[in-house]
Amino acid sequence: MHKEIRLSGTGGQGLILAGIILAEAAVHDGREVIETQSYGPEARGGASRAEVIIADEAIDYPKVGVADVVLVMSQEACNRYAAQVKPGGLVVVDETNVKSVPDVAGARVVRLPITDIARHEVGRQVTANMVALGALVGIAGLATPEAAERAVRERVPKGTEELNLKAFRLGMELAMERARERARERARERVREASDAT
């Protein structure tokens, strides 16, 4: 395994914490990992991104170029990073904040109402990062759910563990539901193709 992941959005969305938790989950899974981050001088509102590389072999260069998996949580981040994805890669879009997605030829785009779920189903918008993390783990299999949940418990502020885990699990479920829909759709396509062929 060698996956390069970029989590992008605006300052205050908790993307760096999400990156750290993903990286820690990879350590629990016994993998090599590296996490880097970049942010403007503002604490909130500026562009923010975290990059994580998870691999079975030692990792030399820590920065992500063209990524395998991209999360975009703001329109600005989407405009900047959505297209920097490998063919066959994955772009996860928070459709609450992102209205238009540029052409990402060859990559799969999954639109999820990440911030809406945090706001309405978890009840706290600040947990959007954990919903996103759950979705990434669910769709892309970047970490085992056990390792990810352990990392969430260890890294979120004391007293907020259950709230954050709830958000994480809702994100996982959302991803699973989308995966099931996709599987059903594919099955239908195969049936159509088969009947067309006959």
Partner: peptide, 9 residues
């Protein structure tokens, strides 16, 4: 700054 701020195993 990169070595200082990055996280690794």
């Amino acid at each position: 700054e990169v070595v200082a701020h990055m996280r690794e195993k």
